[in-house]
Design a protein around this nucleic acid. Structure first.
Length: 824
RNA sequence: GCCCGGGUGACGGAACGGUAGACGUGGCGGACUUAAAAUCCGCGGCCCGCGAGGGCGUGAGGGUUCGAGUCCCUCCCCGGGCACCA
């Protein structure tokens, strides 16, 4: 077979691996290695943009298998969720049907690409035996006080009469109906992830093998802010308003206080004659906030509530305003305003004619008065009672301390991160395992479904009737689902009709792979101890904050529950770049620039496609798909094949006692390549690893061996080449090794070590510079020292002219690299 | 506005502070062929020079260094994230 035909060879090895169970994780004596890729939502078509993720994981998994690890490399399906439900609404097919179909397609393509999954561990989040455990966790979390019911702002589409996820809102409009989305306060279930904000933040310091970018994004998202809280008593009431500030040093400059328009305290403290106006203002602001585009900043508007508050330090009466620039769910929903030293407060004070008081002055120089803008920098306090003269930093500490001693505040920390709302008015999700019974639970807090009654199954439905995309939550339209009996009194009760955010399922799925068929517990502690944490996790950077934070949170809770050995789920994280179409735009049907996996594998072979994806660039950078370049990779593989083919007859030639001359050079080249390729793989530089292998092929291919030593050296080189190529292009590698007499898969024979004796050079090239400019090159014995290199350099015909007539002031000698003459 | 990335030949990309452009794609020239495909050989940053050679060159400008694509400062452009966050 002088030409390699992937269409024959690739299926042959895929079948062989399957039959031998090569990818089964075994739990034997070998050290463990858990490779995980973020599991997909199985969509209808599989294109090369989807699969880069899996290919990177596959190269890592195969490399570790070859190196003698017990590798766990599972795959599953994030099958619940919006895309499936929207598709179902569109074409009136049950999402389960479509999902099953898509899973079959995905598996077929993954197999065709030669991905090394242990399919005996496959999981699917739409399987009741899997989502049962999401419900189990929900109840466990509830027992731990981590689940609560709250009223929160949700995106509400008035046309569809349903809440929408943020992803469904495009530029303030409903993705489906085009209606203007409103913010509406609705009850929902939420997880107290903010109880873990500090731990999530602290934990990042230990995640040294995560991309710095992701850690920064998470830090940013958590948004820890240190400052002080201060209480402002409401005049003529025993209520008080708590504010949060990072600039307690400016407190003497506070001339008014502002609360969010919908701050609950307003109901209790606004004087009767102002109440109507303040309520109207709040309504108007809610409407405007709902309409505004996400990135738009509204003009500052406010209203004097008529209530007064007392300055905690001066006792002065200050006006209390409500205004749109204060957000209800950050900090305390109330701020002290210091127009002289805060840009927002300044702007607002200008609009409404509120007074301004300077209490911070720069350490050097003076302020332009009257102020044209807020002076927001730190400085020295002025007109600030006992704190006058202190620097900002000292004053912040002193004022917070004083507030604490006086019982009207103290140091405080606030986080930007919010609790995690998980309620979705959707059908195709994990039902929240709660029932409502008017007799046992008159407050409507919800009664947990007993563990033995799990799973609460997603009921079968008539798709056309229930999944209309409008009206009540779909499950509310299924009477057999809604009507149930109360677990406490046995009387009639109603089920919760909301389902969970799918991020719940993806927060713990990685642990279910360890024990996918267990029906007693989600997984045992024993398997968790064996496999966790995940050694390497590969996925897109778009999950840096959402999924990866939920996932860490969940693991911390599981750790506290004693289920897993460590509080962090993943040691090493890799963010893979996007695969764009040939036009540089993200691969998508919309642009008509997709490279279908089926088509590509049929045209070029899986190995060529895999090689291209690895060779096109480092894993974390975006790449552009190019059929021409895939062809280039196919050509390279043909060259590898030709090299193997022409030297095939030498596979059995016995190695002589010693190699010299060209035979030695062949061995040196092969072992040197093995050495650097191994290093490249270790630092995930697959693109340069492939380049090194191309160089080796370019060197070996023209050689026509004459002696037995050369023949044996070439045969060895081919074997080594096939082995190092095997993580990237496994099919052709196996085929070559088999032809060269291997009786077992390369995945079982172990990773070769480069012979150190062959890595040592006899002669060494030195670059010679004069004043930092390249002037020549000399070759000396490898052990030569500075004196010998200098002698050779000074004797060099190209270097000499640059030294003549000059004084050598200094000579820089870098062993094995260069010599630089500094002359004047 | 704030926080991350990133700017290197026609293109994708290489380069522990030490020969800039490895490897590949495309291009050009040639060999083989009746022809094409496949394959093989050669050329390939810019400027000057017949040549040997010399000068310039990693977004712009400055700095540190014997030596800077790489480190530091200022700025420009592109991509991404967050955003009335007190």
């Amino acid at each position: 077979m002088s030409r390699y035909d992937p269409a024959v060879t690739e299926p042959k090895w895929q079948k062989a691996w399957d039959e031998a169970g090569t990818f089964r994780a075994r739990r034997d004596q070998r050290p463990k290695y858990y490779v995980l890729e973020m599991f997909p939502y199985p969509s209808g078509d599989v294109h090369m943009g989807h699969v880069r993720n899996y290919l990177i994981g596959d190269v890592i998994a195969r490399l570790h298998l070859s190196r003698g690890y017990d590798v766990l490399h599972p795959m599953g399906w994030d099958a619940l969720g919006l895309p499936a439900e929207n598709a179902a609404i569109r074409d009136k097919r049950h999402p389960a049907e479509r999902t099953a179909e898509n899973v079959r397609t995905f598996k077929k393509e993954m197999r065709r690409l030669g991905l090394s999954y242990d399919w005996s561990r496959e999981i699917n989040t739409s399987d009741p035996e899997t989502y049962k455990w999401s419900q189990w966790f929900f109840l466990k979390f509830r027992e731990r006080g981590l689940v609560y019911r709250r009223y929160a702002q949700v995106n509400w589409c008035p046309g569809c009469k349903t809440a929408l996820a943020n992803e469904q809102v495009k530029d303030g409009l409903c993705e489906r109906s085009g209606d203007v989305v409103e913010k509406r306060r609705m009850p929902e279930w939420a997880f107290r992830i903010t109880q873990y904000s500090e731990r999530l933040l602290q934990g990042l310091d230990q995640l040294t093998e995560w991309p710095e970018e992701v850690r920064k994004k998470q830090r940013n998202w958590i948004g820890k802010s240190e400052g002080a809280k201060l209480f402002f008593d409401v005049v003529g009431s025993d209520e008080r308003i708590e504010i949060f500030t990072t600039r307690a040093d400016t407190v003497y400059g506070c001339t008014y206080v502002v609360v969010a328009p919908d701050h609950p305290i307003l109901e209790r403290i606004v004087p009767a004659e102002r109440r109507a106006a303040v309520e109207a203002f709040a309504k108007d602001q809610a409407r405007k906030a709902a309409k505004k585009r996400h990135d738009e900043e509204l003009p500052k508007e406010g209203i004097d509530t008529g209530a007064k508050v007392r300055h905690p330090f001066t006792g002065e009466k200050l006006p209390l305003w409500a205004a749109n620039f204060v957000v209800a769910d950050y900090g305390t929903g109330a701020v002290m305003c210091v127009p002289a030293h805060d840009e927002r407060d300044y702007e607002f004070a200008q609009v409404y004619g509120l007074p301004l008081r300077i209490v911070i002055r720069p350490e050097e120089g003076a302020l332009d008065e009257p102020l044209q803008a807020a002076f927001t920098e730190d400085g020295v306090l002025a007109d600030s009672g006992p704190y006058t003269g202190l620097r900002s930093a000292e004053a912040r500490a002193a004022i917070a301390r004083a507030a604490e001693e006086g019982g009207f505040g103290g140091p405080a920390v606030t986080y930007r991160q919010r609790d995690w709302g998980i309620s979705r008015q959707r059908y195709w999700g994990t039902p929240i395992p709660i029932v409502y019974c008017e007799r046992c639970d008159p407050e409507g807090e919800g009664i947990s479904v007993p563990y033995e009654d799990l799973p609460v199954r997603i009921p079968p439905i008539n798709v056309a009737e229930v999944l209309t995309g409008t009206g009540e939550p779909p499950l509310a339209k299924v009477p057999e689902f809604v009507h149930t009996t109360c677990p406490k009194c046995g009387g009639p009760a109603r089920r919760e009709t909301e389902t969970m955010d799918t991020f719940v399922d993806s927060s713990w799925y990685f642990a279910r792979y360890l024990d996918p068929h267990n029906d007693e517990v989600p997984f045992t502690r024993e398997v968790a101890d064996r496999w966790l944490p995940v050694d390497v996790y590969i996925g897109g950077p778009e999950h840096a904050t959402m999924h990866l934070l939920y996932f860490r949170f969940w693991t911390m809770v599981m750790h506290e529950m004693g289920m897993v050995p460590e509080p962090e789920p993943v040691k090493r994280l890799i963010n893979q770049g996007i695969v764009n179409g040939p036009d540089g735009r993200k691969m998508s049907k919309r642009w008509g620039n997709v490279a279908g996996a089926t088509e590509i594998c049929e045209r070029y072979g899986a190995d060529a496609a895999r090689t291209f994806v690895m060779f096109a660039g480092p894993p974390d950078k975006d790449i552009d798909w190019s059929n021409e370049k895939v062809e280039g990779c196919a050509r390279f593989l043909q060259r590898v094949w030709r090299l193997a083919w022409k030297n095939h007859a030498h596979a059995g030639v016995a190695a002589p006692a010693a190699f010299e001359g060209r035979a030695l050079e062949i061995r040196r080249a092969a072992h040197r390549t093995l050495h650097v390729v191994t290093e490249d793989y270790d630092r995930l530089s697959m693109n340069t690893a492939v380049a090194r292998m191309m160089e080796l092929v370019n060197f070996l291919l023209p050689i026509e061996p004459e002696t037995d030593a050369e023949k044996a050296a070439l045969a060895e080189a081919v074997r080594l080449l096939a082995t190092m190529l095997s993580p990237v292009a496994p099919h052709i590698a196996e085929e070559i090794l088999e032809a060269y007499g291997a009786s077992r898969s390369v995945l079982e024979t172990g990773w070769p070590e480069a012979d150190p004796a062959l890595l040592v050079e006899e002669r060494r090239r030195y670059v010679i510079q004069v004043n930092g400019k390249l002037r020549g090159e000399v070759e000396v014995p490898a052990e030569a020292g500075e004196a010998e290199v200098r002698a050779a350099a000074e004797a060099d015909a190209k270097v000499r002219p640059h030294l003549e007539g000059k004084t050598v002031r200094k000579v820089i000698f870098v062993k094995d690299r260069l010599m630089n003459f500094v002359v004047g």
